[in-house]
Simulated scan of single mutants.
Amino acid sequence: EQMDRVTTDLQNIVMKVRMVPVSSVFNRFPRMVRDIAKELNKEINLTIEGEETELDRTVIDEIGDPIMHLLRNSCDHGVEEPDVREKKGKPRQGEVGLIARHEGNNVVIMVTDDGAGIDANKIKNKAIEKGMITQEEADKMDDADAVRIVFAPGFSTADHISDISGRGVGMDVVRSKIEALSGHVDVETKIDEGSIFKIKLPLTLAIIQAMLVRVQEEMYAIPLGSIDSTINIQPDEIKTVQNKEVIVLRGEIIPIIRMERMLQVPHVKDSDETFVVVVHTGETKAGIVVDSLIGQQEIVIKTLGSLFTGLKMFSGATVLGDGRVALILDVATMMQ
Rank of each mutant, 00 (worst) to 15 (best):
K200Q: 14
L212H: 02
I191D: 01
M219G: 07
D186K: 11
E217F: 02
D186W: 03
G194R: 05
L201R: 04
S195V: 08
H184K: 08
A221P: 05
K198E: 15
E217H: 10
D192S: 13
G225N: 12
T189N: 05
I222N: 03
I208Y: 06
K190G: 07
V187P: 05
V213I: 13
V213S: 02
M211L: 15
G183N: 05
G194V: 03
I222D: 01
L201Y: 06
A210F: 06
D186V: 10
L201S: 08
E218D: 14
D192E: 12
E217S: 14
P202A: 06
H184S: 12
A206M: 11
E188P: 01
I196V: 15
A206Q: 14
S195P: 08
D186S: 15
Q216V: 11
D186M: 10
D186G: 15
K200I: 15
V215I: 13
P202F: 06
I196R: 12
I196K: 12
F197N: 05
G183W: 08
L205Y: 01
D192M: 10
T189W: 01
G225V: 13
I199H: 03
M211N: 09
K200G: 04
A206E: 15
T189C: 05
H184A: 09
E217Q: 11
L212Y: 03
E217D: 15
G194C: 03
K190R: 14
I222A: 02
V213Q: 01
E193L: 14
S195E: 08
L212C: 00
G183T: 06
T189M: 00
P202Y: 04
V215H: 01
D186F: 04
I208E: 15
L203V: 10
G194M: 05
G225E: 13
L205G: 09
I207K: 14
Q209G: 12
G183V: 07
R214D: 08
I208P: 01
E188W: 02
R214I: 03
I222W: 00
D186H: 08
R214F: 00
H184T: 13
P223Y: 00
I191H: 07
E193P: 02
T204K: 05
L203R: 15
G225R: 14
L201G: 10
I207S: 06
